[in-house]
């Protein structure tokens, strides 16, 4: 991880020396936007081999001080309402087998550390790629013999966030090789496919134009390292697939279903585009 501020501070310093000759007004503090990316004060992670991005930047650095403050403090972060529910459900016995998550996985901090950073993952028994939500529901239906939680339910969001939070600060680390490779390729195709009446691909905004405003919205790299995320617009914790649906609708395209193969493939490709970024779950975004 490199800290850009230092290099930029040095560059600004040398520029300021020259600029002092022609301009004697304005301090650098007054010119700051408060948005780290725009102010050149953000952390980057080296992009994985083959990445089209020159550096990886979390969506955190594209947000206002107010939004970042909510994420920085667990007591202010509204997502913790769902996290607490997740913690309670961890040891709640449900289903025919009379078991809870804790019956098998015991201490969440030990057993789930790093798990959320590695999904989506190839699931050998079904021959499919599955994401964390689907892994949780497989535990419910197969091991606990309980009903699966509905997509976007408070229970599934809370448990997904709670499990992924155990990887907070750890680098996103998905496998795109071996059996995961074909799913990765499909996710990549999705990312570059123009769609909808507006004829835009994910890449149109998040690869080519990140860091720039469209109206009042600052485009980020569209990284997924903070999901499930509390979005101020939603006033709720929400899944990555919900966000995909919103993006697809914005370009006037038919969205796919939450949990669809198409979105799980895209989720893997997107995770790889952020390979190495620290997990921030539960992040707060605008």
């Amino acid at each position: 991880m490199t800290f850009k501020t230092i290099a930029i501070a040095l560059a600004v310093g040398s520029l300021a020396g020259g600029a002092a000759l022609v301009a004697s007004y304005g301090s650098s503090a007054a010119d700051k936007s408060g948005i780290p990316y725009r102010d050149g004060e953000y952390e980057t992670v080296e992009a994985p081999e083959g990445s089209p991005l020159s550096e990886l930047i979390s969506g955190y650095y594209f947000r206002t001080p107010e939004t970042r403050e909510l994420q920085d403090d667990d007591f202010m972060n509204p997502a913790f309402i769902w996290m607490e529910q997740g913690a309670e459900l961890w040891s709640t016995v449900e289903g025919e087998a009379g078991e809870s998550c804790a019956s098998c996985h015991e201490d969440v901090e030990a057993s789930m550390k790093g798990v959320g950073a590695s999904y989506p993952k190839y699931h050998e028994a079904s021959g499919k790629l599955i994401n964390l939500e689907q892994r949780i529901n497989l535990c419910r239906t197969e091991s606990m013999q309980a009903e699966p939680w509905k997509w976007e339910s408070d229970e599934l969001l809370g448990m997904t966030a709670y499990v992924r939070h155990q990887s907070k600060g750890m680098p996103v680390n998905v496998s795109i090789e071996g059996p995961a490779a074909p799913f990765f390729e499909k996710g990549k195709d999705f990312y570059y496919q123009r769609r909808g009446q507006l004829d835009m691909a994910c890449a149109t905004c998040h690869e080519v134009n990140y860091g720039m405003y469209i109206r009042a919205d600052l485009l980020s790299q569209g990284q997924s390292n903070g999901f499930p995320t509390y979005r101020l617009k939603w006033q709720k914790l929400g899944s990555l697939h919900r966000r995909f649906r919103g993006c697809n609708r914005q370009v006037r395209a038919v969205p796919y279903a939450n949990g669809s193969d198409e979105y799980v493939n895209l989720e893997l490709y997107l995770a790889w585009r952020g390979q190495g970024l620290p997990v921030e779950t539960p992040a707060v975004r605008q």
Binding site: Q193, R194, R195, G196, Q197, D199, N248, R249, R252, A253, V254
Partner: peptide, 11 residues
């Protein structure tokens, strides 16, 4: 066009 939403199909 690819997967245009129903409201906008063909328009």
């Amino acid at each position: 066009r690819h997967r245009v939403a129903e409201n906008f199909e063909g328009k």
